[in-house]
Design a protein around this nucleic acid. Structure first.
Lengths: 226, 226, 226, 226
DNA sequence: TATGAATGAGTCTTCATTCAT
DNA sequence: CATGAATGAAGACTCATTCAT
């Protein structure tokens, strides 16, 4: 019931079939969420026997777990590439790059992102703690490190709590990615527009606010008047 | 299909019972989402017959709709009170007040907030468009107005797009409220701590970032060229 | 459970209300048949309390029984009028008159006729035996008498079994009335047409066949060659 | 919605089981009509799980459709045999043969016939239009052709509308078959008697009337004037 | 007497899971 | 190892009937 079997049947499948199984499952889980996803529909689209899914993964939960981990694997490399990319000179440019690259990536992997958002915001996924724990720790750590690095270079205020900064950045990015996938959340802001230039401008506007803040001048005298 | 009767059955119930029904339903929908919510469980907890729910609301969807609208009604008054409150002198104080009041309110109405978050982030709620449309328009308008007012008073940069500002503020607040309800999302930041002072400090840190931004000094000539 | 009560509540109602109750019930039973008829819908349309129906009639079955008997009462007078009408000189004219009058009557009382057809052809009506027994006996007797009278006058073959004749006449009339109410049964014959002259012509064609038969000449020599 | 699979589950069952399923279902639908038929009862009698029926047919409607079509298939061959049989010399003999063969057939397939009558006379069957359309068109065409053939041979009056003739013949046959299955409709005429000779005599009496008509001699100048 | 809230058995339907082939 | 038929618990929903008010 836990691990499908020592000798994992699924892994021995021709990789083409393996891929199709995961793709259709991703489609189903992303579209319907965990409980509402139907193995009937998945095997229907795949044209394979229902029993096979259980042979491969033991249970619906097993399928989901495998699927999610495999999706993470697909994502990790590109995301790490973003992280480890040649750092642009300044923090602002870096942030802009992160936002636009993430947005492009989320567009090209819409289903994975949708599934990820479901996992974040829906409490009744199995293994949610385990799966989410890993991912979020990594994401928040990443943003924190970006901020800390910028602090070391003197580009970001030293009195800033890097954790708080990471929290704000991630909130904003996450919502932006959601909005670009869901017009209802976009609410005419423009992130779900099909006009790429407009989307880019909106992302820049968000980054700009994160960088410069909302206020004209600090209230407490902790930044010099110019 | 068969409207229960012109004069709604549920409205005529003793208010004590009415309240219990709504409470248990809210509990169920907040905990499980729409599809996974079980009317069997609801009536089980209530100790009433399953048929009654259908006499009251006609369908699961009817129950959900009624429930959500009634939740909105409960929320609206306090939120409007926040909005229309004696405005603090400056924008920063106002933002801090909004965050802390919202957080307090979301704590005392955790289930409503949980349900609202599901509605926002889960795509398969019935009536989602309708319900969400109403609410989000109001929320975003509110934040935009707050920003615009501050711009008029010269407290917020005039070159700022109020819509973008509202987007950032709402993303951040929404995620903060989620985090305080769900340790997994908090990831040790402190918003889900039971220590009220700590929570307040964290909220202030977020607001501070929104106000002042991340960077030490605005760099002005760094817009991307490619 | 059997008889609603000695002092029948329903009979004491203002006749206007009584009528409405029966009309709406007729509508419902005619449209949906016995089991599929819904007391919910009936009281919904009537705007009265569901309990009232049970106070008046004790049960769904009681309502149906009362309804059907009352429908019969409404029908009987006009049908008897047809029966006892000034007899036209010859049998053919009489038959034509019966067909056309019945058709006109069935058109103006479509619901009753529909209900009657359901009772005839559907086996799962309560009290079917009792209700149907009465009616059909009367109808067949009527046709038999018409035939016998014509035989006495020498207009109809004496070697004819009046019962068989009545059977044929009734089959044909019944189907014609059904066809005029249901295009699917009419199958382009013309009885469900909105053109009255056409309908009349079709009825006449049927009567003509009943009178004269299908064959050009008797095969067995039992009718004179002319 | 989810077609059980391209290759229909039910068709692959051992034919013995397939047969039992169809028999019990036919029994249920014939006895109770579509809406009142209970899948619970069917599976109860079959001793199989409720889910199986839905695996086989997808829905109650699917079961009914399959059942009806399979019943038609059973019927068609023998009925076509009747139609295409070596034609007896004269029209009267042919009609008698059709009536007696149909009656025999309806006796040995009482349930199918009962179901067919329900479909004809009950308006709330799913797919009624489709199913009925097919069957009735064929039946009426058949009778019309029989009449027309007889007209060509000079055995039937040429002034006769073949459609009207087909209508009368079918009305009469349909009612006769109903009567032999339901004593209530027979009303002591004898078609439901267990005495085969009597039944045959009654059928012959009906055919005789169709052939020769009711009247002693055709009256030719009595068309209605008003 | 009229009301209509409460009931609960019954409806069709879905689905993850098992297991003999 | 793949298959897909069988399962049965659970789902939403309907409805005639009862009974306290």
């Amino acid at each position: 019931m836990d691990t499908p079997t020592p000798t994992n049947t699924f892994d021995k499948l021709p990789s083409e079939k393996r891929q199709r199984v995961l793709e259709e499952s991703l489609q189903e889980f992303a579209e319907h969420g965990y409980h509402q996803a139907s193995i009937n529909r998945i095997v229907g689209r795949l044209g394979i026997a229902k029993g096979s899914v259980f042979q491969y993964f033991g249970s619906k939960e097993g399928l989901f777990k495998h699927l999610f981990k495999s999706a993470l694997d697909q994502i990790k490399a590109p995301l790490r590439a973003i992280r480890d990319a040649e750092e642009p000179k300044d923090f602002g440019a870096r942030l802009r790059l992160i936002f636009s690259t993430s947005a492009a990536f989320a567009r090209s992997h819409a289903l994975i992102w949708r599934l990820y958002r479901r996992l974040i915001h829906q409490e009744d996924f199995p293994l949610r703690g385990m799966l989410l724990g890993e991912v979020r720790a990594e994401a928040l750590t990443f943003f924190r490190e970006v901020v800390e690095a910028a602090q070391k270079r003197g580009e970001v205020r030293l009195d800033l709590d890097p954790q708080a900064a990471a929290f704000v950045i991630e909130s904003c990015l996450d919502r932006a990615l959601a909005a670009q996938d869901q017009p209802l959340l976009d609410a005419d802001f423009g992130l779900s527009s099909s006009n790429e230039a407009l989307r880019q401008a909106r992302l820049d506007a968000l980054v700009d606010i994160l960088r410069q803040g909302l206020q004209t001048a600090p209230t407490q005298g902790d930044r010099p008047h110019d």
